Simulated assay, not measured.
Amino acid sequence: MPSEKTIVLATRNTGKIAELSAMLAGTGITVMGLCDFPHIGDIPETGATFAENARIKALAVAQATGLTAVADDSGLCVDALAGAPGVLSARYSGLHATDAENNVKLLAALKDVPPEKRTARFACAMAAATPDGRLIETQGFWEGAIAVILQGHGGFGYDPLFLDPETGRTAAQLTPEEKNARSHRGRALAQMVPLLRNVPRG
């Protein structure tokens, strides 16, 4: 155990926890989530950018737990919608929106947009904060397009609508390994992991 480092992923999103835990397997880093700290309430995401929201969450959770905390804020940016839903991706169709409701709204917003103009990207800003306030940050992007119908049953969020140009499949049709190798979160985490190894304990 002394050779391991424990970090807290600042999320209760089981999809994110599963993805990030898989990507950190074998690194010597033990992962916990906010579900392990029920006393921590919701952290308002008041930032205007993904980076600001990631920073806010990481610093708050590091302070509350006394452990290094990693937070990410990510979302879908659609060119034909001037970058929307952007930082409001999880709340696109309302404060407590479901993935299905958000996908329905996105398809409706793009109903008259032809395939060649449905370009989009997933963006991820990731921040790690130590209890004493040190901060490291990375980011990742996944370029693609929005499908005209839902395809696939894997992943979460907008995955059934996000077409990966390399494979011609949606993110929801990729295996977890394929998705992690391509995704915005995977790219941000790949940069973060070596930096986390160098963060002193405590």
Score class of each variant (00 low, 15 high):
P2R: 06
P2N: 08
T6E: 15
G15I: 03
K16P: 14
I17N: 12
I17L: 15
E19H: 09
M23C: 11
M23E: 14
A25H: 12
L34I: 03
C35Q: 10
F37R: 03
P38A: 06
I40K: 12
D42V: 04
I43K: 03
E45W: 06
E45K: 01
G47K: 03
T49A: 07
T49N: 12
T49P: 08
F50I: 07
A51I: 11
A54W: 04
R55G: 11
I56E: 14
V61H: 04
Q63P: 09
Q63F: 08
T65V: 10
T65A: 08
G66M: 13
L67K: 09
L67Q: 10
V70W: 09
A71V: 07
D72S: 07
D72G: 06
D73S: 09
S74F: 06
L76G: 05
D79C: 10
A80R: 00
P85W: 13
V87K: 07
L88V: 13
Y92M: 03
H96Y: 14
A97T: 13
T98D: 13
E101A: 13
N102W: 12
N103V: 08
K111Q: 14
D112W: 00
D112T: 01
V113I: 15
E116G: 00
K117I: 00
T119F: 08
A120V: 11
A123K: 05
A123Y: 15
C124L: 07
A125P: 12
M126G: 02
A128P: 08
A128Y: 06
A129M: 06
P131N: 08
F141A: 04
W142F: 09
W142I: 01
A147C: 05
I149N: 09
I149R: 06
L150K: 06
G152L: 09
H153G: 12
H153M: 11
Y158L: 01
D159H: 08
F162R: 01
P165G: 04
E166A: 13
G168M: 08
A171E: 13
A171L: 15
Q173Y: 13
A181I: 07
R185G: 10
G186L: 10
L189Y: 02
A190S: 04
M192F: 02
L195E: 13
N198P: 06
